[in-house]
Nucleic acid binder design. Sequence first.
DNA 1: ACCTGAACACCGTTCAAGT
DNA 2: ACCTGAACACCGTTCAAGT
Lengths: 221, 221
Amino acid sequence: MAQTSVSSNPRRTSSRHAGLDRDDVVEAALLLVDEGGPEALTMRRLAGKLGVATTTIYWHVGSRDDVVDAVIRRHGERQAEHAVSGDTARQRVMSVARHLRDEALAHRGITRLAELHGETSVLNEHLEVAMARELTTAGVVGEDARDALRAILICVGGFLVVAMRNEAAIPPDHSRTAVWSRVDDPNVDPSTRLALTTQVDLPVLFERTVQAIVDTHVPEA
Amino acid sequence: MAQTSVSSNPRRTSSRHAGLDRDDVVEAALLLVDEGGPEALTMRRLAGKLGVATTTIYWHVGSRDDVVDAVIRRHGERQAEHAVSGDTARQRVMSVARHLRDEALAHRGITRLAELHGETSVLNEHLEVAMARELTTAGVVGEDARDALRAILICVGGFLVVAMRNEAAIPPDHSRTAVWSRVDDPNVDPSTRLALTTQVDLPVLFERTVQAIVDTHVPEA
DNA sequence: ACCTGAACACCGTTCAAGT
DNA sequence: ACCTGAACACCGTTCAAGT
């Protein structure tokens, strides 16, 4: 609600010139997505928040796609400011994996925006480079490094998808990974039913599963 | 383009009654999504395809969300008609995993539609039950079965996400999993660069990675 | 160079009205 | 019971026009 401050341009005259910057637009868009998700980023709402006509956005940044792209790149750069921790190579790779997950969950709106636009790899560019670096340092190179990187990132991505699904739909206290109508089917025996309906501890399963994949690719310290 | 045949209702009189069925609407919507993706499913286009006023859809099925839900459930039932193959438990679980992936890729539009609506688990309900059954039969029960099921499904989901990304954006012959601007960064050493830019063989990595997770949960035959 | 308003082609949805 | 047309509140985008 509070009007985004337009700080970059010095004299903020009254009349026709709003003194808007490309940066101001991107920053306002970033806030919009962070607060209200991808669907909150409309050209009209963005303009309204900046106190400007809708068409002005087109002059400064371009189409909605361009705005989205700029938002993703800017947030991707901020994500990069992160020190990798851990003593062994396996620990350091795991720390990047966790950071990737935590950042994605802390900024769900932008994560979903990137996925909708097919720009997830753009968003996570710097973190993927960081992980690749750790692999190289650990002596995993060439095709091995490529396969290790992809396998780990794919697995983390899978966890992200279900983590986003959970906290999006259902209130957090009775969030479960799966509840189906099928559960009432008499053809499903009690043991199978249990496997399907019991709540899973995602952070724990994340550690187990990602660690297993890391271990198959990265030699012990 | 070709008008969907309205077969279910016997007398297909001219005047006001189009003789439309709820099933006809869902079937037409399914086709629309299969051919043109989620964004092709608009109420106006759907009505146009059925030769009927837009508002008629609301009478038969309800809102767009209801149409989407019906489409996902119907396709989910069709997916279920599949015999699980393989002699050992591990092989049979892998066969369900592969089937899940192949079906999702064969019907990308519906896969994306389900994901957009948070109904992926509804779409794959029957296949998840099938996998749970195989686990139970193999003697994996209780919390072990629940963890095994989730870990495997999450990993398959991760592969699905990147497989969908690839063939959606870039022409298939030079599709690669990752090409970044960052690659030109002088801070990235040649070995790391190679890991980041080389194309990965997804089907092969799928086998390796999913098999590794299956093996950690399902005992050898 | 920077910004505006009107206009266009789309959406989903509601609702009174017709047969 | 089944179907329609007009209308509303939204979209993204273009474009001639203003300062």
